[in-house]
Design a protein around this nucleic acid. Structure first.
Lengths: 218, 218, 218, 218
DNA sequence: GATTAAGCGAGACGGTACGTCAGGTCTTCAA
DNA sequence: TTGAAGACCTGACGTACCGTCTCGCTTAATC
């Protein structure tokens, strides 16, 4: 029976998934070697032994291609859990993870992810799911434990963290400004903790920048 | 002989300052018309009736040229003062100014200013001086009045505002996410105000991202 | 089982003759619209709603395909006969027909027919049979009547006409040079007629360029 | 004084004549190696160590470039003179030269010269001047000697030769048909000689196909 | 006033990448 | 096996910018 192919499959030779994976691997490697700006369709085609039309058929822009490559990266930090015993410790740990990630990336790539990826909730979810906590959002379990310990009120809103932590560190990274342990400590103590303790003024309606919850409930 | 002349004056025809101003005007106009990415040396040369060597002689990169053009822009919002009578009102006003600025710029330009300008304290100062409060830093007079009114403790640190407000809004702008009045209100109430009220844990040592005070004490 | 079927019939679905005719019609139309150089397999496939393999299966080169299309064109000038009452008049009429044909074709097509078609006697015969006298060869009846009238000696050889008339006019057409009535008259009077009157020096052994008698006796 | 550069010289860096000569040399060599169809802008650029824009700046099409290369070829057969003592011998010698030339060229090149060059009188003159008699036109001295010897009438018109000899042989070459000594002899005896002997009917007004006298006196 | 070194518009130059098109071959599914 | 569809690699297309260079000219400060 062929009740499945009535509409889902278009005619013609299907794209070669293996080919696509190979290409994206090349893109990933090139990202590390020459950075985002150094990547060109020409170069990718050469390195991958593919033709430019094969690339253009899949991705209309370089950004699309790079984003696809990042999405296709294998999982690394899966399962890592933050639990230092105190909210402050957890926040310092989370911001440290984020800082490490930013230190390992070139600024153009960060900017790209900012512009490209973050408008794409799927990418954010992939990143979180694949790499474990990125430090860009406050994990639910961390928040739950803080509430259990009585460090946060019951209905504490992750808004303060989700919106602020990533934005501040990413911005500094883009500027080449330092975001060392001392700086992060100050951020946690004078901004994040006071803000998290503040009860939400209204049913928090934010679109999480780094959270992938782009189209919220409002 | 007087080859060790009064200053560093080189022999030969000096650069034409008028020409330079004309060129930068062209760059400014093109910024509005075609955006940052659309600007090329070729295009500027064509539009300005200048030659490429004339451009390269002055600015080694496109970024340099654009930054110079921005620096050369005429002042607009000079002298505007924020004073609504309450700290909360002032913060809302400041973030509104910032939001308006961001809405008027294309994201690539924002990113450029982030990367280029903010590593250049002079540019930031120029922007502040020229356009009045940009909303990126907490003006000293606003803070002083809040202290007078008793809304802030005597030694209140502008860190919370300087670091957070600009970074959060700019990041959202880069992502094409909204930063409307409702969002800004939430930011002020649940993040900025609580943070500002928190006494500094240590002698605040931050490098103001948007403040131009780049590598201060540390 | 009947795998040793009646004749040489291959297994599988037979080629669709109707499809082939449709395709050749498209080729003919495209010849008129975009000229020989403008034709591509891609374009034909698109216009005909056919696939490239379907085309390649039938014709290995563009030239083959175009020649096939020309062969498949419907007859137009069938049965027209040249008989003006004098050899000179007949020659002028013949060269006029040829001139008209050349004026209606683009040069690339002429060159193609020259290179492709004329190595293919069948095509020439088809053209002659289909369009009546093309003016490229001296029709036998014209020569016979000239002999009857005593304008030509009994054994007059059509070589002079067959070889010269077509070559000269085609060459001029390829060059974009004019071949108007005055020119043709001069050709007939000072070249063709004198040459036709000359008795053959040896048993004429020519391979008729435009005659399709390609590799005759030699 | 600068009375020379008032209008003749356009501004900007002049084109490098040496570079141009080198490129054309490459084109000439490639013509011999890969033939006309095998030549591409890419290939020429690679071989010449030039950039594509440098080529396109000079020649808009491949044909232009090839024609320029042929024009730039160094002289070879200059000064060769045909004088066998009889008109018939001279004609056989001329057609032999032409045949040799055609045998050495690939058909696509011939077609190109036909289409490109021959609409360009300058090229024809260059070819004649550079290579000596090409056999495409009846040299004046040959005709003069034939008249001296009484083989041709005083006012004998080269039309018959100029128009016919080249066209016939080129056409056969394009078709891959033979044009051996026997064929050429027949052509001379039954077409060219009779035609040359015929007195011109009217003040010959032809545009010589291969003669470069494209815009004659009429 | 002559010299001189640099500025200037123009544009050539070698590069590199762009994004598209066509050539042929292949694989898929349906007929 | 044919046929439509379309992916695939190769390679060329013609264009746009890059950053540097060579021109001939102009401009000022120094001699």
């Amino acid at each position: 029976v062929s009740y499945l192919n009535q509409s889902t499959r278009r005619p013609g030779r299907p794209r070669d998934a293996v080919r696509e994976a190979e290409i994206l691997t090349v893109v990933s490697n090139l990202l590390a070697e020459v950075g985002y700006d150094g990547i060109t369709f020409e170069l990718v085609a050469r390195q991958a032994g593919a033709s430019k039309p094969t690339l253009y058929r899949r991705w209309r822009t370089k950004r699309d291609m790079v984003v696809a490559a990042i999405k296709a990266m294998p999982s690394t930090g899966h399962g890592r859990t933050i639990d230092t015993g105190s909210l402050r410790g957890d926040l310092l740990a989370l911001t440290e993870i984020l800082a490490e990630t930013l230190e390992a990336s070139d600024t153009a790539l960060i900017a790209t992810l900012l512009q490209a990826g973050l408008a794409d909730p799927e990418l954010c979810d992939q990143l979180e799911a694949r790499t474990g906590p990125t430090g860009a959002r406050l994990p639910d379990d961390v928040r739950a434990r803080a509430i259990e310990r009585g460090e946060l009120p019951a209905g504490a809103d992750p808004f303060a963290y989700d919106e602020v932590a990533g934005a501040v560190l990413v911005t500094r990274a883009l500027n080449g400004l330092p975001f060392d342990a001392r700086y992060r400590e100050q951020l946690v103590d004078t901004v994040l903790l006071p803000a998290l303790h503040t009860p939400p003024t209204c049913p928090s309606h934010h679109a999480g920048i780094f959270s992938g919850r782009n189209h919220p409930t409002d």
